[in-house]
Amino acid sequence: MTDLRERTHKASVAVPQKEVRIPGSARSVAKHTGLILLTLVMLYPVIWMVASSLRPGEEIFRSPGLIPGSLEFSNYSEGWNALSSPFGHYLINSAIVVLGCIIGNLVSCSMAAYAFARLEFTGKKIWFAIMLGTIMLPIHVIIVPQYVMFSQFGWVNTFLPLIVPKLLATDAFFVFLMVQFIRGLPKELDEAARIDGAGHPRIFAQVILPLMLPALATTTIFTFIWTWNDFFSQLIYLTDPEMYTVPVALRSYVDATVSTSWGSMFAMSVVSLLPIFLAFLVGQRFLIKGIATTGIK
């Protein structure tokens, strides 16, 4: 078994990185110009948001544009302290929920995915269809009976209704994602391990998991982002402001009938964007480093 892993590992190291082509400089300039233009279009709203967070609240809609008259950092300090707890409190709450969900999804979804991708068992197709079916009902009709159920458990106003379902692989998106990745892995690896006498738990833990690092990284990044941004279920289950998470807190600045603290809202939106952007920056390195599965076939 160990030598198999080593082989895989060595193979990946031995594979030369994809050849960096050195194109004609004119072509390269054109390509980068195009990409930078596209980047600007993509990023314009984000840049506008950052700019707006740096100008006095009343000015945001009276004189919109990208260049603020004066740099105003007070939105950040005001927004940070505007709600019943400092904004950092909501960041921590969100972080707890996100961490729980990531662990849950990584463990439970990869296990379920292995079963669907590599094992032959009775009713597999039906179970798979049921799994996909569970993400086809919109949350708005599920939420009331689910709330009733969780309030029976005494879970309302805790993070449990948000985390426990993830521990139990209810997020079919990731199960399906991992199934697709595992099915893309060469089966010869499993068989080699089986010949070495490994059972399914060992094949899963020592062969498949290391090879599906890109899928695990993807799952981590998406779980992070989606949980961080998820509004509806966090709104419904967290009633005490002490328990509020970032998306719920962010909307507390908004009131369409009286004035909204736009400055604070944009400032805290920028603040809450930072953790997921950092998570993405870190996470994407795993996507690049993903183990190249060559040299086996």
């Binding site: 019943s84 939420i143 009331v144 009733v148 709104l235 419904i236 909307r251 507390s252 908004v254």
Partner: peptide
Amino acid sequence: GEFKEWNGYWDSLATTVAA
């Protein structure tokens, strides 16, 4: 105290009343 913005307020109230 439990504060919400307008839309979320009514979703949340309906759900809690239902339960």
